[in-house]
């Protein structure tokens, strides 16, 4: 069964601008990916444990100990614009 994808909405969410040709091409490709998922639905998975991660590894963490990170000059080194120890970008208001 072919899935329908609103490719322009998906592109907008990813902040991508697609040409008409690209939109047609990606829409078909993504639909194929979703169709592939149907292969899984064809199997009885009722007894299978939910996969929480691709790796069978759990419980990797650290103790709550703080360590100084970058100094401010380093942290801001790649910033195109900065002011008063802060990153400066075009004004955004939600």
């Amino acid at each position: 069964m072919a899935h329908h994808i609103d490719i322009q909405h998906t592109a907008k969410l990813a902040r991508l601008k697609l040409t008409e040709q690209e939109a047609v091409k990606y829409e078909a490709q993504l639909a194929k990916v979703l169709d592939y998922m149907e292969t899984l639905e064809g199997h009885d998975l009722s007894g299978v444990e939910l996969t929480a991660h691709a790796m069978p590894i759990y419980d990797v963490w650290r103790e709550d100990v703080s360590v100084e990170g970058l100094d401010r000059a380093e942290a801001l080194a790649n910033a195109p614009r900065k002011t008063a120890g802060q990153f400066l970008i075009s004004r955004v208001v939600e």
Binding site: R62, D64, V65, S66, V67, E68, G69, L70, D71, R72, A75, L76, A84, G85, Q86, F87
Partner: peptide, 25 residues
Amino acid sequence: RSKMFCPCPAEYGAEPNTHTCPTCL
């Protein structure tokens, strides 16, 4: 004491951008 996903200090009131590292940036 530290941040959620990196060991930077989680204290408040410090000078801007003095508690950062590659992870939290």
